[in-house]
Simulated assay, not measured.
Amino acid sequence: MERVALRRIAAWVALAAGSTASVLITPFILNWMAPSGLNWGKLSNISQTYGGLSILVSTAALIGVVASISYQARQVRIEHQEGQRAWHRELILWSLNDPELLTCWEPPRIPVSRERYKKILFVNLIMAAWITDLRLRRTSEGAALANLRDHFRGEVARAHWAEGREKWRAFSEAQEGDALGLRFVDLADQAYREAITAGPPVTEDDYFRDSSQ
């Protein structure tokens, strides 16, 4: 994808350079080819019109260069965020597979069992995927809010947000230009408050029903 973007930028640059060069050399070509007795006043008017059109083409080419560079910058930002998410996911999964590593993370504000902490960490992965989708505009604010409202019906989901909401907000506020990340935290807080007002959560024991019953 990066090579394609670079080729696109090179094409726009070549077009801009070619258009500018044509404007510069046209008067010399006309002077060389013009027959004797040519009405230079009329030719000057034509040349001015031609030059104006060429400048418009050059401007359009320059705009294309800027657009291509902006596109490339966005792709780099997306790849950077995806890379961050990937290594964070790997660290959490590594800790879940080796519970002895759980104490390498920050301790919970309220002590919980090791099993509950593992579940809270896994919920963190789910939330991290959702906030990334909103940051990269792969989902809308409305869709994110709908997911969060359903999410906070669960007991572990509420425990995770009660534990980590302040940290999520502090991190998003510390990220310069992360307006969508901060918006996600606002949406999560809204959905969490609505869930608390609606009543008790669905407990882990109430998630499933034994098929033998």
Rank of each mutant, 00 (worst) to 15 (best):
Tyr71His: 14
Gln72Ile: 09
Gln75Gly: 02
Val76Tyr: 12
Val76Lys: 11
Val76Thr: 10
Arg77Asn: 09
Arg77Ala: 15
His80Arg: 14
Glu82Ile: 06
Gly83Asp: 04
Gln84Asn: 14
Gln84Gly: 13
Ala86Cys: 09
Trp87Gln: 08
Trp87Asn: 10
Arg89Leu: 10
Glu90Lys: 05
Glu90Pro: 00
Ile92Leu: 05
Ile92Tyr: 03
Ile92Pro: 02
Ile92Asn: 03
Leu93Trp: 00
Leu93Ile: 15
Trp94Tyr: 10
Trp94Asn: 14
Trp94Ile: 10
Trp94Gly: 11
Ser95Val: 02
Ser95Lys: 02
Ser95Arg: 10
Leu96Tyr: 00
Asn97Gly: 15
Asn97His: 05
Asp98His: 09
Pro99Tyr: 01
Glu100Cys: 03
Glu100Asp: 14
Leu101Asp: 01
Leu101Glu: 09
Leu102Tyr: 07
Leu102Val: 05
Trp105Tyr: 04
Glu106Ala: 14
Pro107Ile: 01
Pro108Thr: 06
Pro108Ile: 05
Arg109Ser: 12
Ile110Trp: 01
Ile110Thr: 13
Ile110Asn: 08
Ile110Gln: 06
Ile110Ala: 07
Pro111Arg: 00
Pro111Asp: 05
Val112Glu: 09
Val112His: 07
Ser113Tyr: 12
Ser113Asn: 07
Arg114His: 02
Arg114Cys: 04
Glu115Ala: 05
Glu115Cys: 00
Glu115Trp: 00
Arg116Tyr: 04
Tyr117Gln: 14
Leu121Ile: 04
Leu121His: 11
Phe122Thr: 08
Val123Ala: 13
Val123Gly: 04
Val123Leu: 12
Leu125Thr: 09
Leu125Cys: 06
Met127Asp: 07
Met127Glu: 10
Ala128Asn: 11
Ala128Lys: 04
Ala129Val: 07
Thr132Glu: 11
Thr132Arg: 05
Asp133Trp: 06
Asp133Ala: 09
Leu134Asp: 00
Leu134Met: 07
Leu136Gly: 00
Arg137Met: 12
Thr139Leu: 12
Thr139Val: 13
Thr139Trp: 02
Ser140Leu: 10
Ser140Asn: 10
Ser140Asp: 15
Gly142Gln: 15
Ala143Cys: 06
Ala143Met: 14
Ala143Asn: 12
Ala143His: 12
Leu145His: 07
Asn147Ile: 10
Asn147Ala: 11
Leu148Gly: 04
Leu148Met: 13
Leu148Ile: 06
Arg149Val: 00
Asp150Leu: 10
His151Tyr: 15
Phe152Ala: 04
Phe152Gln: 01
Arg153Asp: 08
Gly154Val: 01
Gly154Glu: 06
Glu155Lys: 08
Glu155Gln: 14
Glu155Gly: 09
Val156Met: 12
Val156Pro: 03
Ala157Thr: 08
Arg158Leu: 04
Ala159Met: 10
His160Tyr: 15
Gly164Phe: 08
Glu166Thr: 11
Trp168Pro: 02
Arg169Asp: 06
Ala170Val: 02
Ser172Ile: 03
Gln175Trp: 12
Gln175Cys: 09
Glu176Thr: 06
Gly177Cys: 04
Gly177Leu: 03
Asp178Pro: 03
Asp178Gln: 01
Leu180Arg: 13
Leu180His: 07
Gly181Leu: 05
Leu182Ser: 07
Arg183Leu: 06
Phe184Ala: 03
Phe184Leu: 03
Phe184Val: 00
Asp186Thr: 13
Ala188Thr: 00
Ala188Asp: 02
Asp189Val: 05
Asp189Lys: 05
Gln190Asn: 11
Ala191Pro: 00
Ala191Cys: 00
Tyr192Gln: 05
